[in-house]
């Protein structure tokens, strides 16, 4: 498992190089081919023993974060979200700009807000990043407009739970790396695609189908949970500890029935805990694979994750391990899978 290293790297959409370099370095000697495409996707290939079909396993390297959009006269930085980040999770956090400069996102003290301000959610134009600079000139010596901004949360593991930033989708990246570490060759050719720019509109995945022409693509995600005391149980998307979540439909795509059912068959055959993802909000690269080129039979398997798109999310270790196991068993089925 590579989650500590992976989640402590900064890789906001469009700025994935730290993550790409880390993964590339770890897997380069374990695969038959490795390349970086025009958009920055890292694609690894392991030849099958029969080589009749091509299966893509995909995870995205990028995370949500921010971009510096202006340097103000007082030396603070205006910023805009890259991907979906709610304003409420931004305040009171330390962020890292351009992989090095630290800054704080604060807000004026409760003592000097009027009653209306206290009760009103903040909009991003009320927030700035403070880097300790007192003028535009001083700030401009360290940062520039267009610099990427990431949260700085460190990884932790305790009580069978893992906490940190960017489990969406470093969890998927780590699952793929764990599968690569198992040196098995399978009947099918397997492509491991580490994608860029998922959080800004499923962009990296758009150029993958044309490079591979896969028969099947399975996207591995860190997905929403919502299993907390503020949501009634019927609104939960997934529940931590109940196993990998298998998606039947999400925004813009009804999952290929043959692949979806085959995944469940494998899970049941090997008694691997699994659950349906019970909400259809949010999309994944599976939608892009399905509608690109001549189309691909695509599916989604996810590690349930609480508090995603915030500075600190949480997954269950058993769910993670069962996701690795399920995908490994899927590959072991060889040509029998999704026939």
């Amino acid at each position: 498992m590579y989650l500590k290293e992976l989640t402590e790297l900064d890789g906001v959409s469009g700025n994935e190089q730290q993550v790409r370099e880390f993964i590339s370095d770890k897997i380069k000697d374990k695969v038959d081919e490795l390349k970086v495409d025009v958009l920055g996707n890292l694609i690894a290939y392991r030849k099958g023993t029969k080589g009749g079909r091509k299966i893509v396993l995909a995870a995205h390297m990028d995370e949500v974060g921010f971009m510096v959009t202006n340097i103000e006269d007082d030396g603070t930085l205006a910023f805009a979200p890259v991907g979906g980040v709610e304003t409420q999770v931004m305040v009171g956090k330390i962020v890292r700009i351009n992989g090095q400069t630290l800054g704080a996102i604060g807000y004026k003290a409760i003592h000097i807000q009027d009653k209306e301000q206290i009760l009103k959610p903040l909009s991003i134009d009320q927030l700035r990043v403070y880097i300790g600079a007192k003028s535009k000139e001083e700030a401009a010596r360290q940062v520039k407009i267009g610099d990427y901004v990431a949260f700085t949360t460190t990884f932790d593991q305790e009580n069978n739970r893992l906490t940190g930033k960017a489990f969406d989708d470093r969890a998927g990246c780590s699952v793929l790396m764990d599968i690569i570490d198992k040196i098995d060759r399978y009947e099918d050719d397997v492509y491991f695609a580490f994608l860029v720019q998922e959080e800004v509109g499923l962009r990296g995945s758009a150029v993958v189908v044309e490079q591979i022409h896969p028969d099947i693509a399975i996207v591995i995600e860190g997905t929403t949970a919502g299993d907390d005391p503020e949501l009634p149980e019927y609104q939960w998307a997934t529940h931590l500890g109940d196993g990998p979540a298998i998606t039947f439909m999400h925004r813009g795509y009804v999952v290929n029935k043959r692949v979806y059912e085959s995944i469940i068959e494998v899970a049941e055959k090997y008694s691997i805990a699994h659950q349906a993802k019970r909400r259809t909000a949010g999309g994944t690269d599976a939608a892009r694979f399905a509608r690109t080129g001549a189309g691909t039979a695509a599916a989604v398997v996810s590690v349930p994750s609480r508090y995603i798109h915030s500075p600190v999310s949480m997954i269950d270790l058993n769910d993670y391990n069962n996701t690795v196991l399920l995908l490994q068993k899927i590959l072991e089925q060889g040509e029998a899978f999704a026939r």
Binding site: Q88, K120, T224, D228, A237, R279
Partner: peptide
């Protein structure tokens, strides 16, 4: 003991969650 102050992800937020603190 360690804890995390939870928050609904944007995917599950509704207007009622966004309109007040």
């Amino acid at each position: 003991a360690k804890g995390i102050v939870g928050v609904l992800p944007p995917h599950l937020q509704k207007e009622e969650h966004r309109s007040k603190v």
